Lab assay of single mutants.
Amino acid sequence: CEICHEVFKSKNVRVLKCGHKYHKGCFKQWLKGQSACPACQ
């Protein structure tokens, strides 16, 4: 996960249209302050 830098250990992964992958919880937190993929912006 590019947000928390932890390895994906479960199926709790969100894959965006751009192809980047994040933990669902991390991405949900990210969206509270941002509106785009962290890696693409």
Score class of each variant (00 low, 15 high):
residue 1 C to E: 03
residue 1 C to K: 03
residue 2 E to I: 08
residue 2 E to M: 05
residue 2 E to P: 04
residue 2 E to R: 06
residue 2 E to V: 06
residue 3 I to Y: 04
residue 3 I to H: 12
residue 3 I to S: 05
residue 3 I to L: 05
residue 3 I to T: 04
residue 3 I to Q: 06
residue 4 C to I: 00
residue 5 H to V: 04
residue 5 H to P: 03
residue 5 H to N: 13
residue 6 E to L: 08
residue 6 E to D: 11
residue 6 E to Y: 06
residue 6 E to T: 15
residue 7 V to N: 07
residue 7 V to G: 13
residue 7 V to I: 09
residue 8 F to R: 05
residue 8 F to K: 06
residue 8 F to D: 05
residue 8 F to G: 08
residue 8 F to P: 05
residue 9 K to F: 07
residue 9 K to Q: 02
residue 9 K to S: 06
residue 10 S to A: 05
residue 10 S to K: 11
residue 10 S to L: 06
residue 11 K to C: 06
residue 11 K to Q: 12
residue 11 K to H: 10
residue 12 N to S: 08
residue 12 N to F: 10
residue 12 N to A: 06
residue 12 N to G: 06
residue 12 N to C: 05
residue 13 V to R: 13
residue 14 R to P: 03
residue 14 R to A: 06
residue 15 V to C: 07
residue 15 V to T: 08
residue 15 V to M: 09
residue 15 V to D: 08
residue 15 V to H: 08
residue 15 V to P: 10
residue 15 V to N: 05
residue 16 L to S: 13
residue 16 L to P: 06
residue 16 L to R: 08
residue 16 L to D: 12
residue 16 L to H: 03
residue 17 K to C: 07
residue 17 K to A: 14
residue 17 K to H: 12
residue 17 K to M: 06
residue 17 K to W: 05
residue 17 K to N: 07
residue 18 C to Q: 00
residue 18 C to M: 00
residue 18 C to P: 00
residue 19 G to M: 04
residue 19 G to V: 01
residue 19 G to Y: 04
residue 19 G to I: 00
residue 19 G to H: 06
residue 20 H to T: 01
residue 20 H to V: 00
residue 20 H to R: 01
residue 21 K to T: 13
residue 22 Y to G: 12
residue 22 Y to L: 14
residue 22 Y to S: 11
residue 22 Y to T: 15
residue 23 H to T: 02
residue 23 H to Q: 02
residue 23 H to W: 00
residue 24 K to G: 14
residue 24 K to W: 07
residue 24 K to T: 14
residue 24 K to Q: 15
residue 25 G to S: 12
residue 25 G to A: 09
residue 25 G to R: 14
residue 25 G to Q: 06
residue 26 C to R: 00
residue 26 C to W: 01
residue 27 F to S: 11
residue 27 F to D: 10
residue 27 F to K: 12
residue 27 F to I: 11
residue 27 F to H: 13
residue 28 K to T: 10
residue 28 K to E: 15
residue 28 K to M: 10
residue 29 Q to T: 15
residue 29 Q to A: 12
residue 30 W to N: 08
residue 30 W to D: 11
residue 30 W to E: 13
residue 31 L to T: 12
residue 31 L to W: 09
residue 31 L to M: 11
residue 31 L to C: 09
residue 32 K to G: 10
residue 32 K to H: 11
residue 32 K to L: 08
residue 32 K to C: 09
residue 33 G to F: 07
residue 34 Q to I: 06
residue 34 Q to F: 04
residue 35 S to G: 14
residue 35 S to E: 14
residue 35 S to C: 10
residue 35 S to W: 07
residue 35 S to A: 13
residue 35 S to Y: 06
residue 35 S to R: 09
residue 36 A to E: 14
residue 36 A to C: 10
residue 36 A to D: 14
residue 37 C to L: 01
residue 37 C to K: 02
residue 37 C to G: 03
residue 37 C to S: 03
residue 37 C to D: 03
residue 38 P to F: 06
residue 38 P to R: 08
residue 38 P to E: 06
residue 38 P to S: 10
residue 38 P to L: 08
residue 39 A to G: 13
residue 39 A to E: 07
residue 40 C to K: 07
residue 40 C to Y: 01
residue 40 C to E: 02
residue 40 C to M: 01
residue 41 Q to M: 14
residue 41 Q to F: 04
residue 41 Q to E: 15
residue 41 Q to K: 14
